[in-house]
Computed example of a mutant assay.
Amino acid sequence: MDKDFKSIVLNNSDTIVQKWLAEIDTMKRANYSDSVSEELLESTNREFVNIIFNSIKNQGETEKLQQFAEKLIHLGWQVSYITDGLQVFRRVTIDFILDQSDKVDSHYISELMQQVDLWVEPVIRQLVNEYSGNWENIISLQRVALQELSAPLIPVIDNITVMPLIGTIDTERAKLIMEGLLDGVIKHNSEVVLIDITGVPVVDTMVAHHIIQAAEAVRLIGATCILVGIRPEIAQTIVNLGIDLSKFPTKSSLRKGFITALEMTGRQIVDSGQKDDSIEQMMDSLGGA
């Protein structure tokens, strides 16, 4: 920015800040802050405008810009807050300088706009790039976390584990299920794995194919899969599609599947005549018959 323009802005920062705050306040509810308190909005606006002036004084400094972008992401604000705020500041600054100047010729106005743009545009790019980069990093971390939680393998008793599946199963998730099953069977020394599809809304040919592949892979390393949670509508779909699930046991509920798993591992539930609360609680947690 030209030294004369820069000195005008810095020497009249209080006035420009007030004009900027007044304009940005009229936009707040329309764009980015419906759920933001007045106190938080006011403090963030003042932090934003301070960062803008700091950028005028110390061009090229990026640390505060990065920190501010990270703060906006954690607040959940849209990137439009950044772009709108800087465009408002650009307009307010140009209008203020023109009001203070006796020069109104086109050359002066053009030079002023060019100089302000040379300063504002890099700040916009810097903040937007920082915002986008941090947002992509957060999305990436969330994706990894969701993948880790998408197919948990839970050991419920010696040699018996359960994998509850919830939501849609696509090719990428099927690969994670396969890897989780194989690693979990070895880690927990499982003899029987119950794959619970109660929470899977649709079982089509592709989903069934992935489940069959996973069960076959588990069989090859010495364990057995039991498919549980087959609802009547799912059973009808499987029959209509001609899907062959005869290679491994299927049960309508996790409770029934668990009883079968006990039998396959040489155990059974015996009524001793005394109520064992722990067994009752475990069976209740596995669902009704």
Rank of each mutant, 00 (worst) to 15 (best):
R46D: 05
Q115M: 07
D271Y: 11
P155T: 11
G222R: 12
I259T: 10
D105F: 01
I177G: 04
V92A: 02
K57E: 04
L262C: 01
S190T: 13
T83L: 00
V49E: 02
L41G: 04
S285R: 15
S101W: 04
I56A: 11
V116Y: 03
I230Q: 05
N54Q: 12
I212K: 07
N31E: 06
I82P: 00
F5T: 11
A223Q: 09
F89L: 07
L182W: 02
N189D: 11
N50R: 13
R46P: 01
Q147Y: 12
V144I: 15
V123P: 15
I139V: 14
S7V: 12
A215Y: 14
E38N: 15
E121N: 15
V193D: 12
V203W: 06
T161H: 10
M283T: 12
G167P: 08
G167A: 14
K187I: 14
L10E: 03
A208K: 13
A145Q: 11
S132T: 03
L241F: 03
S272N: 08
M163I: 05
P201A: 14
E39R: 13
M1C: 00
I230H: 07
I154Q: 02
N11K: 03
D204S: 09
P201L: 05
L118D: 10
S101A: 07
D170F: 05
I160A: 00
N189Y: 15
G288I: 08
N50T: 09
L40S: 07
V207P: 01
L98A: 01
E47T: 11
L146H: 09
G288Y: 11
S253H: 03
V88L: 08
N159H: 00
Q100T: 14
I24S: 06
Q67M: 11
I154G: 01
N54R: 13
E70G: 05
I169C: 03
Q274K: 15
S55Q: 08
G287H: 05
E148L: 15
T250S: 12
H188Y: 08
E233D: 05
I16T: 06
D244C: 10
L86C: 11
I16G: 00
A261E: 01
I97T: 02
I279R: 12
Q18G: 09
E216V: 15
V185E: 05
T205R: 09
K247W: 07
R46V: 00
G266C: 02
S278L: 12
G85I: 08
I97D: 01
K256Y: 04
I259A: 08
K71S: 02
L194W: 10
L286N: 12
L227P: 10
D14Q: 13
L149M: 12
I226R: 14
I269C: 03
